[in-house]
């Protein structure tokens, strides 16, 4: 497999894993939980290194997931006191956990292979160099891991499709039919955490957060059905991966950054050009209606 292909595939898998969850985050108005969870897992990664002296992906993912759950539950607890609004609760909990992680890194692990840059800014350009051998076939580790996450997320969304849909659309109704919105929300955020952590390692935090929020937000401007929204989200994600890679090669710039920029451009296009909810469409519609009203009024006056 060529290096370029590996990079594109890795990014595409990140886009897929994130794109399956992102629409639910955007619709539930917790898009920023992805940013929060992505940062809150740092102490988990550090703790695993300190306790077991390993950076092997599985233990790291488990350790990070533990802190993702701590983050989610901490935010829930703070919010449930009704003394702190939910956005403030997010803004309090994740920096605290992140701070814990930074302290851990600088205090205990300095000099080891666990530096902040590698943890937070895993670099997608290095993805092809880290391979696992299966018999005679060598596959990039990131592809294996992310493939597994895509599979897990797809299973989760497929199995809990109607539960996720119902709790997101109408939580109160869901409770009356015995589907707990809290449980679904926790499951979703744990999936976000596992996705984020796994993807971190290979592509860096910012691309994960971008892929979780931006394509879904763009799709939200384009779609009237949930299934379509997820499909469009995935499409935009892959487009960003492929185009972003090309741009990065041409401009000799950061691959993750370029992919993020392409996704951002997609959002801007959707914002302006969406046939139904776009700025342009709505401005035209407004103008047309105004013209119609004026014509109708003129007619009425003439008839009188």
């Amino acid at each position: 497999m060529s290096d370029d292909l590996t990079i594109i595939l890795t990014a595409g898998l990140v886009a897929t894993a994130a794109g399956l969850l992102g629409p639910f985050l955007v619709l539930r108005r917790v898009a920023l939980m992805s940013d929060a969870v992505s940062h809150a897992v740092l102490p988990g990664i550090v703790a695993v290194y300190l306790l077991f002296e390993t950076r092997a992906p599985l233990p790291v993912i488990v350790g990070a997931a533990v802190f993702a759950v701590v983050c989610v539950i901490g935010i829930d607890l703070l919010r449930s006191t009704r003394l702190v609004a939910s956005d403030a609760a997010i803004a309090l909990v994740f920096p605290a956990l992140f701070a814990l992680g930074v302290l851990g890194v600088t205090e205990f692990a300095s000099g080891a292979h666990l530096d902040l840059d590698a943890t937070i800014y895993g670099e997608i350009a290095f993805a092809p160099f880290d391979v696992w051998a299966f018999g005679s076939v060598e596959v990039a580790r990131s592809i294996v891991l992310l493939g597994a996450v895509v599979l897990a997320n797809a299973t989760l969304v497929a199995l809990l499709w109607k539960e996720l849909k119902a709790t997101t659309f109408d939580p109160e109704f869901s409770r009356t039919i015995g589907i707990s919105p809290t449980l679904l929300s926790r499951l979703l955020l744990i999936a976000v955490a596992v996705t984020a952590v796994t993807a971190f390692e290979s592509v860096g935090a910012i691309l994960v957060v971008t892929m979780l929020i931006v394509p879904a937000a763009a799709a939200y401007l384009l779609c009237d059905r949930l299934l379509a929204m997820i499909a469009v989200t995935l499409g935009i994600g892959w487009l960003s991966a492929v185009l972003g890679h090309t741009v990065a090669l041409r401009a000799d710039a950061s691959i993750a950054g370029s992919m993020g920029l392409v996704a951002a451009c997609c959002f801007v296009l959707a914002l302006v050009l969406s046939p139904k909810y776009g700025l342009l469409a709505r401005a035209l519609q407004r103008r047309r209606r105004r013209r119609e009203v004026r014509a109708a009024l003129a007619e009425a006056h003439a008839a009188r």
Binding site: I206, T210, A256, G257, L261, A264
Partner: peptide, 8 residues
Amino acid sequence: SSFFSLGI
């Protein structure tokens, strides 16, 4: 995410 991507 857009601005940060641009920054990188």
